[in-house]
Design a protein around this nucleic acid. Structure first.
Lengths: 218, 218
DNA sequence: GAAAAAACTACGGAAATCCGTAATTGACAA
DNA sequence: TTGTCAATTACGGATTTCCGTAGTTTTTTC
């Protein structure tokens, strides 16, 4: 089987609300003779097409879209096309996001900041029967698996409460534990994130993706 | 003078280290028959070309590049081509970024998240002799001009230091003022951002774009 | 079923924060 | 020129954070 030939035969759906990204992705695919590309600026427009009988070999999707949560979209695609090859192109390196994507067994994860032809590599690997996760994903997961650096669930709960402006006393009340316990978790967070005070803690937590802006940690 | 004709005649330089953005921008320009586009993945590769005698009508540049600060690039372009039309395409909505861009009198500011053909609008406006700043820029500046909500320069300096994990005492030493002064600025920040403590202050400051989150993200 | 990790509790004390309130100086604008 | 505003300084006191150290209980994992 000629790989180059197989690649150019693929039907691809690109879902991204950013014009720039959508056009860029299409241009990169076109440079490898992948011309059968359908562009969608909203999640629902793709779902509508699928319900109307459309089928694609690859779905390149963004996680943040105005009309639908990316994870919901993944499940909607899978419901309509169980063997769908799903490639997630994102800017999120939060460990939660990655874990949720792996749990949903997406076929590839690449960052938008990566090299353009990484998308080609991803498609080729999937055609060979492999999954493709970019280098930074592997790195993030490696760090996360090192529990000496990665906060526990309980600690992340405290972290979230801190980010909401709660004091240790308030957090203790909300979590039904003593203030001492909260202080212990707080202490663990400091050492694990290498922070010197709350301000530093919050900055580092956001940098490392433990807190999303305005979001909930799951 | 036919505007459509003028547009398609333009020589454009696109500088962005992201493959996706560079290709996307080029594709959008091509859709309006702007085909004389040179792509640069680093700032210095453009500067080298300029030194070798190249000239462009429009420079579409990103602010964050691995090899050179965006503001430095702007000045290097202007030094080589004083009447250069510079369009900044960015993700930064921090108010001082915008202020610095306006101070350097760039011809257009657009966000990467915006509509694709906004870049066309920008070029057309510049050809008419106007500057073009996207809607969100106007909004950000409007909020910033409401001084009752917007921190002063001095307060922003303190805010930055806080985000670096510095204590009031350390900040006072660094800024050559008393601890009391720092506390006063800190207090003003709290009321202006509506924060209840440092953790909250940092979260809100990042949300509002007063602090950029350096490092890990993207 | 034992070892390891996570979760919880405790406490004393130093350091830093947060709060209210108030006053002075200099610059720039109506 | 008079008034507003940014920037500065001041202080006492309550609250909260931060640090070190140390122990118990529960849950997970091999």
């Amino acid at each position: 089987m000629d790989n180059q030939f197989a690649l150019s035969q693929m039907k691809v759906a690109v879902v991204d609300d950013h014009d720039l990204v959508r056009e860029g992705m299409t241009a990169i695919l076109a440079s490898r003779n992948v011309n059968n590309v359908a562009k969608f600026s909203t999640a629902m427009s793709l779902v509508d097409q699928l319900d109307a009988g459309a089928e694609f070999d690859f779905y390149i999707i963004d996680l943040e879209m105005p009309d639908l949560d990316g994870f919901v979209l993944i499940e909607m695609i899978r419901a309509r096309n169980p063997v769908a090859h799903i490639i997630v192109s994102t800017v999120h390196d939060e460990i939660w996001t990655l874990r949720k994507l792996l749990a949903r067994d997406v076929n590839a994860i690449i960052y938008k900041s990566g090299e353009g032809n990484e998308i080609i590599t991803a498609i080729e690997e999937i055609l060979k029967g492999n999954n493709y996760y970019c280098e930074d994903v592997h790195k993030a997961l490696k760090i996360a698996d090192d529990s000496s650096l990665y906060p526990s669930t309980r600690e992340l709960e405290v972290l979230y409460q801190i980010s909401q402006g709660k004091t240790s006393r308030e957090i203790a009340a909300a979590m039904f534990v003593t203030e001492n316990t909260v202080e212990a978790h707080r202490k663990a967070l400091f050492t694990k994130l290498g922070a010197v005070n709350v301000a530093d803690l919050i900055v580092k937590a956001i940098e490392k993706g433990y807190i999303k802006k305005g979001g909930v940690i799951r």
